[in-house]
Design a binder for these strands. Structure first.
Lengths: 154, 154
DNA sequence: TTTTAAGTTCTATATTTGAAGAACCAAAAG
DNA sequence: CTTTTGGTTCTTCAAATATAGAACTTAAAA
């Protein structure tokens, strides 16, 4: 079903995803990305990843909530079959960029509280905040550029 | 020494920094960024943040290791005085981008293992990997653009 | 209407993480 | 030398997180 290499990749990708979700959820997501099989039932996920029912249930619902995965059903079959939903992945990057913007706002606030706005440190805060803002502004253009490139040579 | 607002900012910025370091280290870094005072001794940090010696020591060394902070000494004074080192902050963004690249490599590896590279999922993996790569390639240009803008109107 | 299947939720642990405080150490001061 | 200072390291301890497994729920099937 899963080759050794695929299992290893699930672990490696899982570790990346652990930044932001519990290990079990991270492995579930990685499984759905890496596997050849297009969809997995609750129990298949459970068995393959050797998780308890609760860890499986919680992980799946966490991922459904974030819309990282979705499920479909089959007529005359009560099970749900889960698949990765890759389509809103660009959103993921947007969220990352928004987070940078939020931090830049805190840096600005810190600058406003500085007695002396001309120290090296204060100027650096302003600079970093400006950079974060700039990145936030530039990002849509970069993604657009990528989309154009991609549309031209598919 | 620190206003209420500054203390609140240290907490808020600290929470951002917790992604990637332990809370105590995050607060130390936030303190060195937010405060007007340019440098702090070990015991000042300890007292202001109400940390134990071990938490202070570990946090400081963690931050020194990552070169997020540095210290200087004064003649006839054994203490070290710690300051934020903002200068390689652009590096911080580069690291973030490098991390994205590392993930794209794992996605590529996953794609290589796919039996059928023409499924929706496989094509999406390719697409995401390509986007991550593109971001990695574009970033230096974006930062350069920012530097030019900044040089022109300082 | 009883049983079964598919999952959820609850309770009990296990694991991980972070921090406290004491013991320790090395260099400088006395 | 011996004491003090400035910190580090070691040994708990506490809290947060994650998981297991059992008990429960709900809807469909028998």
């Amino acid at each position: 079903m899963l080759s050794q290499k695929q299992k290893e990749l699930i672990e490696k990708i899982g570790i990346y995803f652990e930044e932001g979700m519990q290990p079990a959820a991270a492995r579930i997501l990685a499984l759905l990305i890496v596997a050849d099989q297009v969809s997995f039932s609750f129990d298949e996920i459970r068995e393959i990843l050797k998780l308890s029912k609760s860890a499986t249930s919680n992980g799946i619902n966490f991922l459904l909530n974030l819309k990282k995965i979705e499920y479909h059903t089959k007529p005359g079959d009560r099970k749900r079959y889960f698949t990765w939903s890759p389509d809103n992945i660009i959103n993921h990057f947007r969220e990352g960029i928004d987070k940078i913007l939020a931090l830049s706002i805190l840096f600005d606030a810190s600058l406003q509280l500085k007695r002396d706005k001309n120290t090296h440190s204060a100027k650096k805060i302003a600079e970093i905040s400006d950079l974060m803002n700039f990145l936030h502004l530039e990002m849509p253009g970069v993604i657009e550029k990528w989309e154009r490139k991609r549309a031209s040579k598919p």
